[in-house]
Design a protein around this nucleic acid. Structure first.
Lengths: 207, 207
DNA sequence: CTATGTGAATTTATTCACAGCA
DNA sequence: TGCTGTGAATAAATTCACATAG
């Protein structure tokens, strides 16, 4: 294997592989071929082999890939080996759903703090996490929390992002439907569920 | 302008443009240049001009684009001109957040039905929508609902997808963390919020 | 004989650079 | 002069095809 910078598209697919591999591991499966994995994930075998080849040779010719090895390697590439602590800002409907979402654990995420501006929510507990005043976001720095999740109304998104960046947060998921400006070094991934729905009618025949 | 099949990447960006243009329109702005729009959205001007050029010439050289015209044209391309009715399956935490999410209205979506399997939920109302028994999904056919949103646990995702397809649903958002198999003609867009969070640590410097 | 790993070919997407219109 | 619209150039991603290892 030669050196390659792993492309963003490959990085985007790694969690997809990881998700599928975890399901297969739970089912007690130990090995899988690129073809079977492709069928399971709805992708194609070349893509999978090419992606895997970017970060090493883990398969056995004539046999396939060992699932545990793959999981370990992908976790390593994505830096998911240690637990990643994250903070949520905005405990509305979406924020609560995020707190309750069971899927983060598989990737080693732990949401350990939650903030809101509403006096009615501050001090209450949701999923065993006490909601703190959003003005205390700065405390994330000494708590060594480097990931954030923004689930506030659009108008408050930029100031929330600024506060998180000020608190030393290095990357966050932004559920607010707008672009937020951050320093070059900070990574933002924006999710807008309505936007994804919005391109569905395009793909549907007129009648 | 010559004929071009509009690429999937361009289609993916159209809702982003739409979202920004709506905000600008609300602010009372009437015209905008590709450069200013690019700054506002965190994209670059060439991309925007190229994308717009795929479906017509709407700008005025030396001036820019009229916001209302752009909104109308993008809505037309994405088939968002008429109201699109949608049905939700799975009224858990995420499902409730989806029902309460205000962002769908901008794109002309109206969630008009909700289903769940839990006896404790059936018959109750959430956001003015009565939760129906999931076994009644077939009724979507005569109600002429062609879009679905799946927010059920992974184990139930495939059977839910099958039920929706059986009820004539042509496309759906899948929030369940797995691939679902559907006929060629049906479009599925999968959103897994944990997967997006999972690629964040990769982009964050080790320390 | 099977399934990986990977250069090469192809396709697709982005960026550039500038002609042309207001 | 300012900004659009778009071919051409570049870059990136996907797909193929097959040599190679077990």
């Amino acid at each position: 294997m030669r050196y390659h910078k792993i492309s963003d598209e490959t990085i985007r697919r790694l969690p997809v592989y990881l998700r599928g591999l975890h399901v297969l591991a739970e089912q007690g499966r130990e090995r899988i071929s690129s073809r079977d994995l492709a069928d399971f994930l709805g992708l194609n075998p070349w893509q999978i082999r090419k992606d895997f080849s970017y970060f090493g040779e883990f398969g056995t010719r004539g046999v396939g890939y060992e699932i545990k090895t793959l999981i370990r390697q992908i976790n390593k590439i994505l830096r998911l080996e240690a637990v990643n602590k994250a903070a949520l800002v905005g405990v509305g409907n979406l924020g609560k759903a995020v707190l309750a979402y069971p899927g983060f654990k598989m990737y080693g995420f732990d949401i350990v703090a939650a903030f809101d501006v509403s006096a009615g929510k501050i001090g209450k507990k949701v999923k065993n996490i006490e909601i703190e005043d959003a003005s205390r976001i700065a405390s994330l720095k000494r708590r060594n929390i480097r990931l954030g999740i923004i689930a506030v109304p659009r108008e408050a998104a930029q100031e929330t992002a600024d506060a998180l960046v000020g608190a030393g947060v290095k990357g966050f998921l932004n559920f607010s439907p707008c672009h937020v400006t951050v320093p070059r070094k900070v990574k933002v991934i924006t999710i807008d569920i309505a936007m994804d729905l919005a391109r569905l009618p395009y793909y549907i025949p007129a009648n």
